[in-house]
Computed example of a mutant assay.
Amino acid sequence: MTGVQQEIVGEDEGGQRLDRYLRRKFPQLSQGRIQKLLRTGQIRVDGKRCEASGKIEAGQVVRIPPLENGGAEGGIPKRLHPVDEKQLAFLKRAVLFDDRDVLVLDKPAGLAVQGGSGLGDHHLDALLDGFAEDGERPRLVHRLDKDTTGVLVLARNRRAAQALTESFRLRETRKYYLAVVKGRLPENSGKVALKLAKRGLKGQERMEVAEDGDRAVSLYRVLDRLGDAAALVALWPQTGRTHQLRAHMAALGCPIVGDAKYGGGECENLPGNHGHAMLLHAWRIILPHPHKGILDVSAPVPATFVKACRELGLNLPGRGEDPFMDVE
């Protein structure tokens, strides 16, 4: 049996139903089993009983009771298990920062952060046992899309996870992204405050602007332009909705280059060949360290991104630059 698990809701996991959160995090836990565990009070949120349809928020703690591994009842699989050594060796070369509280990785394109349909063990969460210390595996406190590269922060212990998640919840964290977008943005800098909701058939869902959606706010700043054809932009999401930056840029008529889901896949009018990779990079994160000062970590811009900017004549910012220095 696994012991009691205390799962902290990540910064971009809030706002969803509890049962959906549980099914995503523990795919072997059936809906019926979830309902029974909730009805008997074995699964709790911040120590309180909760309905399956109840909304969870970032920073809350979800108690998962001891359950049989596997079995007909759909228990939670044991979290510590052998990992793919080749993938793990590759990921260990991508460590940007590591101490007793925080682990920061440079996530490559094509690697999902968590499992899903058809992924098997080919996702980052399946490799985290290889980073475990004293039997405790790192905990995800936020996510990046599968094809987004760059800075990904993990907590090495429960207290650090709570502190980091609280920093995200209180907007004490600055997450800067770089993106190449198609077209011409309406202003050199601006704020996008458009609510987003998931729409579409299963397997084809995407986030769309909707009055009944969740609050979503993003800041952008143009760093360089290729006339009206494309621009290099810095992005700072103020909230953490799924596909937020991708959906917001598309809503402005300037989808991210290479993002076929949101209209950025066709790039025949741009110099070079950019349809094979989404040009969205989690470039820099600045946040309070759980125990000491401020943590400021940048991920090097990937070679594919650098090549695209060179072909488009777009100049990348220098390391350590702060495009939003004048924004509180």
Rank of each mutant, 00 (worst) to 15 (best):
M1E: 11
G3Y: 14
Q6T: 12
I8E: 00
E11W: 15
R20C: 09
R20T: 08
L22C: 12
R23V: 06
R24E: 09
R24G: 14
F26R: 00
F26K: 00
I34P: 03
T40G: 07
D46P: 13
C50T: 13
G54N: 14
I56S: 00
I56F: 00
E57M: 15
R63K: 11
P65Q: 12
L67C: 13
E68G: 02
E68A: 10
E73V: 08
G74T: 06
L80S: 05
P82N: 06
V83T: 13
Q87I: 05
L88M: 03
L88P: 04
K92A: 01
A94H: 06
F97Q: 05
R100W: 06
D101L: 09
L105S: 05
D106T: 08
K107R: 04
G110W: 02
G110D: 05
L111S: 02
Q114T: 08
Q114K: 00
L119C: 00
L119V: 01
D121M: 01
H123K: 03
H123D: 04
L124G: 02
L127T: 01
L127R: 06
L127N: 02
D129W: 04
F131G: 05
D134F: 04
R143S: 07
L144E: 04
D147I: 06
T148V: 14
T148I: 06
V151A: 10
L154C: 12
R156M: 02
R156E: 09
A163E: 11
S167H: 08
L170K: 12
L170D: 12
Y177C: 10
L178I: 07
L178C: 11
G183W: 13
S189V: 00
V192C: 14
K195L: 15
K195P: 15
A197D: 12
K198N: 05
R199K: 11
G200T: 10
Q204C: 04
M207Y: 11
D212H: 13
G213K: 13
G213M: 15
R215G: 12
V217K: 13
V222H: 09
L226C: 13
A229V: 05
A231Y: 15
A234S: 09
A234I: 08
A234E: 03
T239H: 08
G240Y: 08
G240V: 08
H243R: 11
Q244K: 10
L245D: 12
H248F: 13
H248M: 08
A251G: 09
A251T: 07
P255N: 12
G263D: 05
E266I: 03
N269H: 07
N269Y: 02
G275K: 04
H276G: 03
M278G: 01
L279Y: 03
L280H: 02
H281R: 02
R284H: 04
P288F: 07
H289S: 10
P290F: 09
H291F: 01
H291S: 10
K292R: 14
V301R: 02
V301I: 07
A303R: 05
T304Q: 02
F305V: 05
V306T: 10
A308D: 06
R310G: 05
R310Q: 11
R310V: 02
L314E: 10
L316W: 05
R319F: 14
G320I: 11
E321N: 09
D322M: 06
F324A: 11
D326S: 14
V327E: 15
E328T: 07
